[in-house]
Design a protein around this nucleic acid. Structure first.
Length: 292
DNA sequence: GCCTGAGTCGAGTCCACGTT
DNA sequence: AACGTGGACTCGACTCAGGC
């Protein structure tokens, strides 16, 4: 059994998104596995690769080859046919290649590779939630109204349907929003969210908001609210409660779930601080593809 | 080259309350 | 009492990548 040489890796969130949306989930798992267990290069007949296939449940060598070829095509891994060496490109290289400018990165641990699709989905969900927090706690405070029009509003776009200028009491997403982020149906989004919660990547809390309390039933209040606040349509709940032996009615608005991120994010260096000539990177890629 | 099972999605169920 | 509503969740059938 080989032990990992690194106990954690910083994965740029943009790279995680790219992998999720381009069918490179397994490929990225292989790439990270090689980063965990090698010091940047590995021979094609190394026993570590057998362990990789076992750990990532890739029993067929053709399956492994498919993913490796995809990684070479994306130039995340280089290959020299003469020496039979794979070269694992570093993060700086890949960020330069794809122009991944965002500085947000997630901390990946070796055990995250076992359920890597759920991990990546959790990263995308938690990123959205932390972006909401960032918008309200940093951008709003700075009052960069003009700047928000460009980039901060984009961050805020996935936030809840909160419309006032008041900071939301909590941050989260409904299944519909999660499905939109993960490019899947609500059913699948729900499954992934539940699994991510089971694996401890996020916490989910169901939420209701108190709207009104009144002593006598008022059957006009619902239509009044719908008229005044169309976005509450179908989400108003009325509960009968008791206080000091007195019956009273409570109107509540059903809200999206609160999601508490358990994923750790870190800031990585500016892309402009990385000095890698893009022509060299692309040249290396062409040579590797020919060889593969 | 055929078989298997993970991933996917539409349809259905559940829950808790509203409406007639 | 019977039916409606909407969000969360489950079921079962289908597809196709991966495995033998």
């Amino acid at each position: 059994m080989f032990e990992p040489k690194n106990n954690k890796i910083l994965l740029p969130v943009q790279q995680a998104e790219y992998a999720y949306y381009h069918g490179l989930v397994k490929g990225l798992a292989i790439y990270l596995y090689l980063k965990f267990y090698t010091d940047g290069k590995i021979k094609s007949d190394s026993p570590i690769l057998s362990q990789l296939r076992h750990d990532l449940r890739l029993k067929d060598s053709r399956t492994f080859k498919t993913h490796i070829t995809a990684l070479i095509e994306h130039n995340w891994i280089g290959y020299d046919p003469f020496s039979g060496m794979y070269f694992i490109r570093n993060t700086k290289f890949i960020r330069t290649l794809h122009e991944f400018r965002h500085r947000q990165a997630t901390v990946v641990l070796p055990q995250d590779l076992k359920q890597f699709q759920i991990y990546l989905a959790a990263v995308l969900i938690c990123k959205e939630v932390t972006d909401q927090e960032f918008y309200w706690d940093v951008v709003k405070k700075r009052r960069l109204r003009k700047a928000t029009a460009k980039w901060a509003v984009a961050k805020h776009s996935g936030a809840s349907s909160h419309s006032s200028n008041e900071r939301p009491k909590y941050f989260g997403l409904c299944n519909k929003s999660i499905a939109a982020i993960l490019h899947c149906k609500q059913t699948r989004a729900c499954v992934i969210k539940t699994k991510a919660a089971d694996l401890g990547y996020l916490q989910v809390k169901h939420k209701y908001k108190d709207v009104l309390e009144f002593a006598k039933p008022d059957f006009n209040i619902r239509s009044y609210l719908h008229e005044q606040y169309p976005n509450t349509a179908g989400r108003i709940r009325c509960w009968v409660k008791w206080k000091n032996n007195q019956k009273y009615y409570k109107l509540l608005l059903q809200l999206h779930d609160e999601i508490i991120s358990q994923i750790k994010f870190k800031r990585i260096e500016k892309l402009s601080a990385i000095h890698l000539p893009i022509e060299v990177i692309r040249g290396i890629n062409k040579a590797a593809l020919k060889a593969a």
